[in-house]
């Protein structure tokens, strides 16, 4: 019973999200609102401004280099978080063992 209620709920959510997605402009290419003046600037000017023919590389490490810096900091933080969770397990047991004995 609960299973079927959940399935119906998810189907309704799917219909709702599909309806809202169908209101978007579809694959209309260059007329799409996402293809705005920033994109035109990147495509037309990036070779003169950065010298790299790969537009993605020039956006990633020149126009939005701070974004990539934040990305590397996210990776660094994830390592610190994982190590801080997994490392200290051995220490409390070692400290407890002498007090118990």
């Amino acid at each position: 019973m609960r299973k079927w209620a959940l399935r119906i709920l998810f189907f309704m959510l799917f219909m709702l999200m599909s309806y809202s997605v169908l209101q978007m402009p579809g694959d209309i290419g260059l007329d799409s609102p996402a293809y705005n003046e920033a994109t035109h600037h990147y495509i037309e000017e990036s070779l003169g401004e950065t010298g790299a023919i790969n537009i993605i590389a020039s956006i990633l490490t020149d126009y939005r280099a701070f974004d990539t810096l934040g990305e590397t900091i996210v990776l660094f933080t994830s390592i610190i978080a994982v190590i801080s969770i997994l490392r200290p397990s051995a220490k409390p047991e070692e400290e407890e063992a002498p007090t118990d004995g």
Binding site: A34, T39, Y42, I56, I59, L60, D67
Partner: peptide
């Protein structure tokens, strides 16, 4: 459009 591809890397 190159911009979404760049944002997805993040």
């Amino acid at each position: 459009n190159p911009l979404p591809s760049v944002l997805i890397l993040t």
